[in-house]
């Protein structure tokens, strides 16, 4: 379990983490969702003992992150935002290096390396230098490295940043499988809404160093007032809207009926659209067959409010995405050349 108390991190006159209080429970997948510069990485770095907090405390697995940093480090695994393996070494060599650094016992070392390589699907590329890996393979190697010593808590800082949609979905599957197979607590940061939605039990929305909302993905979305059903009727116009509104106002799961100005469709805000949609359609249909109105339904659709809507509501801004910084190919001169070109 992780508990964070009044954590603050200041950089000169910038407050990167602003009085954060948070509990993260065992075996949960917790998402930190926020835009660039929100403080996600800083928070993870503090928890991983790489950055000292300005004030406040935090405990991981019962160890204080400042006073017992070495014990904290033994019990966590972390995948950084940018790849951090040595690209002059092969994937296997990187894993071997870290299994020694984490003092994985000698008799299980090779098996552990083999297992994590298999889990991330890099077995056949294990002897290639990391500089020859694709971005997605590098990420997977980092994840393998984070799992080597069977930590109870794993941090993933933007696990799918810079991956194409296919690789992203594959990564999601890995993460999902990981959580199911390994019984770990996982904390991931992201600025992709769908990612947080898909993977996390609970989400903390972080903005300007503050946790501004904390709930399950569905809880967050429900806080917006349900889902949205859009109905296209044969007869369009204000009259129809009033009729439908009067039909539906007896249901308390319906919050609001509005007319979409552009297409003339009805926009109905409801709770739990999937189970209530049939009720709504039936009510409209009954009204038709009773002969009082001619409002037959031409087409229907519903969508949930996205976390994007949630983020918008809490911050008044959209989350923008960013390009991942290109990483160097490797090698001293290449590294240098790369640097010179910047």
């Amino acid at each position: 379990m992780i508990s964070i108390n009044n954590l603050v991190k200041k950089y000169e006159n910038l407050t990167a983490i602003d009085r954060v209080n948070l509990e993260i429970y065992d075996n949960e997948v917790f998402g930190l969702l926020g835009p660039n510069g929100a403080g996600k990485t800083t928070l993870i770095h503090i928890l991983a003992t790489l950055v000292k907090p300005t004030s406040g405390t935090a405990n991981i697995n019962g160890y204080d992150i400042v006073k017992e940093s070495s014990k904290v480090r033994s019990s966590i695994g972390i995948v950084f935002q940018a790849p951090s393996s040595d690209d002059m070494l092969s994937g296997y060599e990187n894993l071997k290096l870290h299994s020694l650094l984490y003092a994985v016992p000698a008799h299980i070392r090779e098996k552990r390396i083999k297992d994590v390589l298999e889990l991330v699907g890099l077995t056949d590329r294990k002897d290639h230098q990391v500089k020859k890996y694709s971005g997605g393979m590098r990420r997977r190697l980092e994840i393998a490295r984070g799992l080597l010593h069977k930590p109870k808590v794993i941090f993933l800082d933007e696990p799918t940043l810079g991956l194409d949609p296919t690789s992203r979905e594959i990564m999601w599957k890995y993460i999902d499988k990981l959580v199911k197979d390994e019984k770990i607590t996982l904390i991931l940061t992201t600025h992709y809404m769908e990612e947080a939605d898909f993977l996390c039990n609970r989400i903390g929305i972080i903005d300007k160093g503050k946790i501004i909302a904390l709930d399950s993905p569905s809880g967050l979305k429900e806080s917006l007032g349900g889902e949205i059903i859009e109905i296209e009727l044969k007869n369009k116009g204000v009259g129809t809207k009033d009729t439908v509104e009067s039909i539906l106002k007896r249901y308390n799961f319906v919050h609001k009926v509005e007319l979409n100005d552009k297409e003339g469709n009805l926009v109905i805000y409801v709770d739990d659209a999937s189970s209530n949609l049939p009720v709504i359609l039936k009510a409209i249909d009954n009204d038709n067959s009773s002969g009082s109105h001619n409002n037959s339904v031409k087409s229907v659709g519903f969508r949930s409010p996205t976390l994007n809507d949630v983020f918008l509501k809490f911050t008044g801004r959209e989350i923008t995405s960013q390009q991942q910084e290109d990483h160097a190919e490797g090698g001293f001169m290449e590294r240098y050349a790369q640097y010179e070109n910047k």
């Binding site: 991983a48 003992t49 790489l50 070495s70 014990k71 480090r73 033994s74 966590i76 972390i78 950084f80 940018a82 790849p83 951090s84 393996s85 040595d86 690209d87 870290h98 650094l101 984490y102 003092a103 490295r145 990483h327 160097a328 001293f332 590294r335 640097y339």
Partner: peptide
Amino acid sequence: SYIIWDRKFDFLKSVMVAPVS
């Protein structure tokens, strides 16, 4: 001084987050 590169390319971070003095 090659450690500057280790830091620049984040390798150092991955070593320092391991339980190594």
